[in-house]
Design a protein around this nucleic acid. Sequence first.
DNA 1: CGAGTTTGACCAGCGC
DNA 2: GCGCTGGTCAAACTCG
Length: 237
Amino acid sequence: MFPSTSKGVMNQGLVENPEIMATSHMGFNLQASHLPLTFSPYSLSKTCTVGGEDAVSRLRGNLPSLPPDHGNDGSGRLGQSPTQRSSSDLWSRTGDRAASDKGSSVAAGEYYSNNKNGPAANNIIIDGLSVGAMRMKKVKVRRKVREPRFCFKTMSEVDVLDDGYKWRKYGQKVVKNTQHPRSYYRCTQENCRVKKRIERMAEDPRMVITTYEGRHVHSPSHAEEESQPSSEVTLFW
DNA sequence: CGAGTTTGACCAGCGC
DNA sequence: GCGCTGGTCAAACTCG
């Protein structure tokens, strides 16, 4: 479903929004209790460190959810203003199907291992963005609907991170070349089609790879009590 | 009893 | 065209 890197789709020279934009579009929220944490891309184009001892905690609750159709023209690319475009020139498009489809099992390991910084404690490293595609099944017709995707890895005992949203598991699959199954979750909020995949790295089972797909059209279920002042968030760079 | 999880089956895309 | 693989569905099951 998502173009693989091997097919060269990733290298068409297209420019996407900085991944962090997509991150905020998705209303991404992460709890500090799972540090250390490392964001990673499907492929490298740039590495940014949202440094700080409590970077993750500051992340939580401070990434605004995107209005339902903002920034997505349905073609799989995030909408960009000229201003955004200029800043995104530093970023190259990553694959639409990076961590899925053929080779994805290794993909997880390969793409993430590109991060040479390693899981530095309390540092968040974001080095890429992938715009993905997803299939939607309606009756017997599955149509492709591309959604922005964002993935990161955390060193955590637990698989499912508390990101403030409520998820419902809808599938589990053992992917090739990995001993750990990949779990599929959907946001339980009505009309919210955000999904996330969770799997453990083959190379390092302590590392949990979480891939978000889509954008939340609502606030975190408990954002009110746990969100921080928006002034603390510095996810636009 | 409702919500969430498990799990086998099914389907689509891709490579050969 | 066929086989492989990842993603999704949905019935059965579990849990509170």
